[in-house]
Amino acid sequence: MYEFELVKPASLAEAIEALKAEEAQPLGGGQTLIPTLKQRLAQPGSLVSLAGIPELVGVEVKGKVVNIKGATPHARVAELTASAFPALAAMADNIGDPAVRHRGTIGGSLANNDPAACYPAAALACGATLVLTGPEGAREIVADDYFQGMFATDLGEGEIVTEIRFPIPEASNYQKFVQPASRFAMVGVFVAKYADGVRVAVTGASEEGVFRWTEAETALTADFSPAALESLSVPAEGMMGDIHASPEYRAHLVGVMTRRAVAAS
C-alpha cells in the first residue's frame, strides 16, 4: 500500500469538508477498496472513513418506500429490511461472506458499480432514487441516470452516496448465479413488479455493467409468468467473457435467472 492519511470525520459535514482535500477519497466498508489499495491500484492522499458516522447508517420504512443510509453495512440492510422488502434483504444477506457483510456498505457498492455487484441490479430494477451529497449540497438522481457503465456513475468529485430510496415492489426476487470463488454474480437478475409495470435488471453479464432487459419487462408486464419469457433471449454480443463463463453462457444464464426470479417472486 502507498502511504496515505486516514481521516475519521464525526459527521457528514466534516466528511464532505475532508473530501475537499487533494487526492482525498471516501472509504466505505473497504471490502473492495482495501484489496485495491494492497495491489497498489489506487493511490489516495487521504481516505475519509464514512463507517463511523451515525447519521449515515440506518434504514427507514416510509409507506411504500425503504430509505437506506449510504454507510449501512449489508448485514444491517438484511436485518432491517427483512419484513418490509424481503427480496432486498435476501439479496443483501447473500453478498460475499458474513465477515464481508459486516463491513461492506450499500453506498460503497453503488459508488463502485462493479459490473458483477448485486446492489446495482436491485437499485436499477426498483428505479431507486440515490441521494448524492457533496460540496454543493445534496441532489437526487434516479438509478437509470446514475449508472453509466462498468465502474462508471454520475458521482461527482467529492460526492458520496448518502441515501438510497427503494420503492417497494408488489412482487420481487433476486436470483444470483454465484461465481464460486469470488461470490460475486456470474449473472444476477433482479425482477420487480409494480402497479405500472415490471422492471428487470441484470448484473454480472454485460460489458456495459448493470442493464435493464426491456424485452423481458414488456413481456412480463403483459403476463407475469416464466412462460412469458420462453421465446426471449439476450444476444451474446456485448456480454463479458472470462475463464468462468463465455459470453454465450452468460447470455443463456440471463434467461435462466430471469425465469427463476419470476417463478420465485
Binding site: 472509504l27 484489496p35 463507517a51 463511523g52 459486516h102 463491513r103
Partner: peptide, 15 residues
C-alpha cells in the same frame, strides 16, 4: 469488532 466477525486484513486499525 464490536461483537461482529470481520476480516482483520481488510480493515484499518484506525477504523
Amino acid at each position: 469488532v464490536d461483537g461482529q466477525s470481520v476480516k482483520a486484513c481488510t480493515m484499518f486499525a484506525g477504523e
